[in-house]
Write a protein that binds this DNA or RNA. Structure first.
Length: 619
DNA sequence: CCCCCCCC
């Protein structure tokens, strides 16, 4: 079943003699601890592979295959076929095998135990850090602790003419400067800040504009490019001089040899590039066009289904493949802080989850989208921002890589076919709410204690949030007031003689209408909060009308009046709350107003809670 | 060293 001897061949023979699609058994899977990695998607997995004769402990899974581990498609004991792999020389004699594509031949749970009696092949003969394998039978995770791949300085200088590098990329003349020893091409995923004697060969998949900034720390220009090879991807950033030196050279889709850049921990907040590190172009950096034809991948996506967007927090970045089902016109908005005029255009995206989401294009992107209006293009978006307005929506940032009808993304073609045959006629549920309800009940749920703990309401417009809470007390005294009877005026009237005067309308009326202004105490498992309910929201929780309450009050039927309050107490609802700091008599305090009440929909609520649990799991 | 991405 296993390709006996394949490990020996891969480690000792030139690449032409490497076995094609060897079959191995996985004897261990270990997540490599990486510093400062937040959330999922940045991990790397090291595999212990056996060919039944030998064990190789330095195999790595290409980052784009991480999901196979996460979804447990590959587990210890599984038999797998390597459809595509590279073997890179490390520290003269130690070699890392990188699995680029693979097929599960037999899942781990169907394999009783270790196949054959494989011996550890110590490729790392120069190092005593590699522990001999102490594999128990039955295929337990056999990773020896403190292995050489666990985040330390794993890569030494590579020598020329060995392993994958020179064989695969044989026509490449080493790029090292004079006097430096020649070097081999490294896979992107092997780069670390701990050693810098590497050259990568990578395709530019996207390039930003040159941005300028000016702040207290200074000013300057900056750009970035995303680079990809068979093993993974990395973002490279260049400042000032590097902009002049490299911006023009680095054309999208072209392939380059890149060396002598520094690496630093990447801030995951700003990119969906699957790499813990980011590359910085500096004065020593060398970038040369690779003229050879090579088969490097294009952009790497990690698409998220639109239907799963509820599992992502606001401001997270995701990759989305969606078909445009509607386009709004371009409108102008004025920004709150800088009063600048900015163009925006909302479009609606649909995918196979049969859920749609509204996405906003800004500035030039909004204007230039005119050419696609009336068509149904497919957009491949890498690094689009999740926003919580009115459920979930997307914001297409300057840094978002947007491809329209990308021919290189085969799912894009499939999505068109699906839309023509299925999607077109499906009932589509929107995650963004429709325009009329637009954000009436947002998906940005908070607990009552979060309202104060997170200091909501500091801004001039206040903050909106949704809470699930219980009505625990209502101040029924003075909850009704006599208001101006005219249609749009709800001002309290002053009784004068037999009439009612409205100061706002500057008019006297013979009649008035009762309106509600109800101080209500809401509670959830974290605390409670006084919230003001006006007419419609108060009528909703009291399950009656202001008019009816007025009648009971006027007729002196206190029992019936009180009964309505009693029945409305200890009922749970979903509340949309506006929180805003307000100052009265030099005292600033948080004022909360309920702007919408919705019944607790158990099905929806369960789905939301499941989503919350899923979010916790992803931490 | 950027990392702002706006509005309802």
């Amino acid at each position: 079943m296993l390709t006996g001897g394949a490990i020996q061949d891969i480690l000792s023979k030139p690449v032409e003699q490497h076995p094609e699609k060897p079959v191995f058994q996985i004897l261990g899977i270990k997540k490599i601890q990486t510093k400062g990695s937040e959330g999922a998607g940045n991990d790397r997995y090291r595999l212990v592979l056996s060919d039944g004769v030998n064990i190789h402990t330095s195999a790595m899974l290409a980052t784009q295959l991480n999901d196979l581990v996460i979804s447990k498609q590959i587990e210890v004991k599984a038999v797998i076929r390597l459809d595509k792999y590279i073997c890179n020389i490390i520290q003269e004699t130690r070699k890392v095998l990188i699995v680029l594509e693979m097929t599960v031949i037999k899942p781990g749970n169907e394999v009783p135990g270790r196949i054959g009696e494989p011996k550890n092949i110590n490729a790392d003969s120069n190092s005593d850090r590699q522990q001999p394998q102490q594999n128990g039978s039955g295929g337990q995770n056999s990773m020896s602790g403190g292995g050489t791949m666990s985040g330390g300085p794993v890569l030494g200088g590579a020598s020329r003419g060995a392993g994958l590098a020179s064989a695969t990329y044989g026509s490449h003349q080493p790029l090292a400067s004079k006097g430096d020893s020649a070097r081999a091409v490294y896979p992107i995923m092997s780069l670390t800040p701990y050693q810098n004697r590497w050259t990568i060969r990578a395709r530019v998949t996207s390039k930003s504009n040159i941005r300028t900034w000016s702040n207290s720390k200074g000013e300057g220009r900056v750009f970035n490019v995303d680079l990809v090879d068979e093993s993974g991807e990395i973002r490279a950033t260049g400042f000032n001089d590097a902009v002049d030196k490299f911006y023009e050279l680095l054309e999208v889709n072209k392939v380059f040899y890149v060396s002598k850049c520094s690496l630093r921990t990447a801030n995951k907040q700003y990119s969906t590039i699957k790499n813990d590190y980011e590359m910085y172009l500096n004065n020593d950096s060398i970038i040369e066009v690779c003229e050879d034809r090579c088969n490097l991948p294009t952009l790497q996506y990690n698409f998220v289904q639109i239907g799963d967007l509820g599992n992502f927090n606001a401001d997270s970045l995701v990759d989305i493949l969606g078909l445009v089902i509607s386009c709004d016109d371009v409108t102008q908005i004025t920004t709150k802080t800088t009063n600048r005029q900015v163009s925006k255009r909302d479009i609606t995206l649909l995918d196979r989850s049969e859920k749609s989401v509204r996405a906003t294009l800004w500035g030039d992107d909004a204007e230039k989208f005119d050419e696609h209006v009336g068509k149904n293009p497919v957009l491949a978006l890498k690094g689009v921002k999740v926003s919580e307005f009115g459920g979930r929506s997307l914001s297409i940032l300057n840094s978002t890589n947007m491809r329209v009808n990308p021919t290189e993304v085969k799912e894009a073609h499939n999505l068109v076919g699906w839309y023509e045959n299925v999607g077109k006629n499906s009932t589509i549920e929107s995650l963004s709410g429709n325009r009329s309800e637009g954000g009436a009940m947002g998906a940005d749920y908070k607990t009552l204690s979060q309202i104060t703990n997170e200091q909501l309401g500091m801004g001039p417009k206040g903050d909106y949030t949704t809470v699930k809470a219980t009505v625990v007390f209502m101040k029924k005294e003075n909850c009704l007031y006599k208001a101006c009877p005219s249609a749009d005026c709800n001002k309290k009237v002053i009784e004068e003689g037999d009439g009612y005067r409205c100061e706002k309308c500057d008019k006297s009326y013979t009649d008035f209408k009762y309106r509600l202004l109800l101080q209500t105490n809401l509670a959830d498992f974290t605390g409670n909060q006084w919230v003001t309910f006006f007419q419609e929201t108060a009528e909703n929780i009291l399950n009656t009308t202001a008019e009816r309450l007025g009648q009971l009050k006027d007729s002196g039927d206190d029992t019936a009046f009180d009964q309505l309050f009693l029945e409305a107490s200890f009922k749970q609802h979903i509340f949309r709350i506006r929180a805003k700091m307000e100052t009265y008599n030099d005292e600033t305090r948080l004022k909360c107003t309920c702007v919408n009440v919705a019944a607790l929909d158990f099905k929806k609520e369960c789905r939301r809670l499941l989503g919350e649990i899923k979010k916790l799991k992803m931490l």
